[in-house]
Amino acid sequence: MTTDLSLEKAIGQRTHSGFVAWLVSRQIFWVLLAAVLSVIAMSLLTSTFATPNNLFNVTRNFAFVAIVGIGMTAVIITGGIDLSVGSTVLISAMTTTVIMHAGLPITIAFPAAIAASLTVGAINGVLIAIAGMPAFVVTLGMMSIARSIGMVMSNNALIYEFGPDQAILFAIGGGSVRVFGLPIPNPVIVMVLLTAITAFLFNWTRWGRHLFAIGGNEKAAILTGVPVRAVKVSVYMFVSFCAGLTGFLMVGWLGSVTTGLGSGMELTVIAATVIGGANLAGGSGTALGAVVGAGLIEIIRNSLTLLGISTFWQGTFVGGFIVLAVAFDRLRNTETSE
């Protein structure tokens, strides 16, 4: 009898709720709405927000967090976490810097940077998936180790000489592409492509299905023959790849690398994914969610600066949104369980 009724209810929900109801039930919709409203408000309130220059900066700034956030979403869907992404960004940037400073071409520096990042991810993945250690602790350790290695690589020198391919490097990270006459920063292009590819992977491929299966019920996934260990290793490598990409782009944008690069980034990235609807307990999350979450955080940051409010307030706003996002999630869960 229980089942019959809940079935009827389920069918009812499916048929009566149209597109609007579906939209309203999505966390990402509300986050997007908040972001759009902030943009409109800022455009009306200030003359400085809606300038091509400022918008260019805002989009580029959040692209970095968003790219790493897309990778983080994959990890969080499986029920894991990666605290070492900020340090991986540094490892990638340092590898690029050291190799190019030595006069080697970018065609060697870029693959090397990505390979270094993937190595970090592979170590994380093996320790977590195969040795069975808790992701939080492994990546906390890796956060420290990777940053320290990055510092060693820098040899305590600030490098702004990148050899013969310097112009290419700066053009990739700091340049832009004109789309319909608008200059779009390259990191944004990368972000858009990565979002599309990842959304596709999540929704339409075996890998994506396996991520959700592991996050939904890892034991059942193992017993169903899902290659859980391999998928988990791949997920930590994927987020490290995203971090590596970001590190490489950031060198080109900044023109130099400090040992503080990417420091504290992991928390912003996790905040972005959570605001975008990923559940830290695993089993849910979208690629677009991380991007929208990162966007909202950057808009808040930028708005506060333009409004002349101390950036010290930034944390209050971002923190408030995190709590709101989780509260929203709770609310939605109690509604469906009733």
Partner: peptide
């Protein structure tokens, strides 16, 4: 606990392996 993914649909559970 170990046999089935409750938040997957029937079709998704059947196709998973």
């Amino acid at each position: 606990a170990t046999g089935i993914l409750l938040d997957f649909t029937v079709a998704e559970n059947i196709s998973l392996p």
